[in-house]
Simulated assay, not measured.
Amino acid sequence: MCHEDADGAFGRQSASPDSPSRRAFSRLLLAGTGLAALSACTPAQPFTPSGTPGSTPEPTPGTGGATPTAAAAPSNSPASTPSAPPTPATSSAVPPSATARPPSATAPGPKHSLSDPTSPWVIVNKHRPLSPATFVPPDLVRPAVRLATSGEAALLNSTTAAAAERMFAAAAAEGVIITLASGYRSFATQTATYGSYVNSRGRAEADTASARPGYSEHQTGWAFDIGDGSGADAFTPQFKDRPAAIWAKANAHRFGFVVRYPWMLHQITGYFYEPWHLRFIGIEAATDMKSRGIGTLEQYFGLEAAPAYL
């Protein structure tokens, strides 16, 4: 599980990118629509939360106010192939045309590559695999934060690690404990995880639950999953109501992070709402996205939507 073997270490350590870990997955269902949730970063063993789901989150701008209730998928039973996800109610959820000037063109601060995996603006989605596919960040370190994982999953690239340290410390100063639940994931780990889904459920269903090798943001070192200090509701829809998720949604931009897979924008990102998955893009860009109410990196950088693999 992404949240097991917490060692509570707070000292940053250099680490080899080959450290073993196992990426975890869970399946989510949107009860209001009967759709299986796509999840880029969920536990390998199905996780059924105790209690009832929390209140539904506020919709991200451009969703038309739709707020279906989400629930965790039943454990130990293959899910049926989901029907096509609903189209967001308003056209504002559609990313700008590739020929239009994207919002990022007027963003403050330096500009970066969208394809270089060492760039904080690299875009990895179902239309844009990493190049090279087996990329390994050259500067992986273990950040000095509270951990809820171990091995390679406790690593981030050095820039993301430093920003995470500042963010976790700021949250703690306000009485909110955030944990690092899953960070770097190697190509080999992703290959094994995705392959197990294909072998048990077939490729079509595997694509709704697991990123293909070379298509995961976790492999870049720029993204990680957070947990709450209580350990409750990890990788479930209810996590949105935990103090860590609430604080991160309101404050992550101050440290250069965005919630990568926002509410009801799955037809753009390819993944349903993941309030635990943060992505570093830099303070200027993250703050600019926040102030403009832009929900996805695809919209911000003027890229096409990537709801499914090409």
Rank of each mutant, 00 (worst) to 15 (best):
82 P>Y: 06
126 K>R: 13
127 H>W: 11
81 T>N: 11
132 P>S: 03
183 G>L: 00
83 S>M: 10
98 A>S: 13
90 T>K: 00
145 V>M: 04
83 S>Y: 08
186 S>H: 00
170 A>E: 15
131 S>M: 02
124 V>G: 08
113 S>V: 08
136 V>F: 12
103 P>K: 05
99 T>G: 04
94 V>P: 00
138 P>T: 07
140 L>H: 09
77 S>D: 06
92 S>H: 05
96 P>E: 03
94 V>Y: 00
183 G>S: 04
202 G>P: 06
157 N>W: 14
102 P>H: 02
114 L>M: 11
174 E>G: 13
166 R>Y: 04
145 V>R: 06
113 S>M: 06
126 K>F: 02
188 A>F: 02
174 E>W: 10
127 H>D: 10
163 A>H: 07
113 S>F: 06
188 A>I: 04
132 P>K: 01
80 S>Y: 02
75 S>V: 08
152 E>A: 15
158 S>Q: 12
79 A>P: 15
197 Y>D: 12
196 S>V: 02
85 P>N: 13
121 W>H: 15
164 A>Q: 00
154 A>E: 10
125 N>L: 01
203 R>M: 12
166 R>H: 07
152 E>R: 08
116 D>C: 09
146 R>A: 06
147 L>E: 13
204 A>N: 13
196 S>P: 05
202 G>T: 05
103 P>T: 07
175 G>I: 06
79 A>H: 09
130 L>K: 04
139 D>M: 08
123 I>D: 07
118 T>Q: 09
164 A>I: 00
187 F>C: 00
189 T>G: 13
165 E>Q: 03
167 M>K: 09
143 P>E: 04
185 R>E: 05
150 S>A: 14
151 G>P: 08
121 W>I: 04
84 A>L: 13
115 S>D: 14
91 S>E: 14
153 A>H: 12
132 P>L: 02
112 H>R: 10
95 P>E: 02
171 A>K: 03
154 A>T: 09
132 P>E: 04
199 N>L: 03
175 G>M: 05
127 H>E: 07
178 I>H: 09
87 T>D: 10
84 A>H: 08
171 A>C: 08
131 S>K: 04
175 G>V: 06
189 T>W: 02
130 L>M: 12
179 T>L: 01
131 S>H: 08
125 N>K: 01
94 V>K: 00
139 D>Y: 12
93 A>Y: 03
199 N>W: 00
105 A>T: 03
132 P>I: 02
169 A>M: 10
109 G>N: 07
177 I>N: 14
165 E>K: 00
196 S>W: 04
185 R>K: 10
98 A>T: 13
195 G>I: 00
82 P>D: 09
137 P>M: 01
106 T>G: 12
123 I>W: 05
182 S>E: 10
153 A>K: 05
167 M>H: 13
139 D>I: 12
77 S>G: 07
99 T>N: 07
86 P>Q: 05
175 G>Q: 07
121 W>T: 09
123 I>T: 11
141 V>W: 13
165 E>N: 02
149 T>E: 07
93 A>R: 01
87 T>N: 07
139 D>H: 12
125 N>G: 05
204 A>H: 13
103 P>C: 09
137 P>Y: 00
85 P>L: 11
91 S>V: 14
187 F>L: 01
186 S>D: 00
142 R>Y: 03
190 Q>I: 08
85 P>M: 09
96 P>L: 05
130 L>V: 09
180 L>I: 02
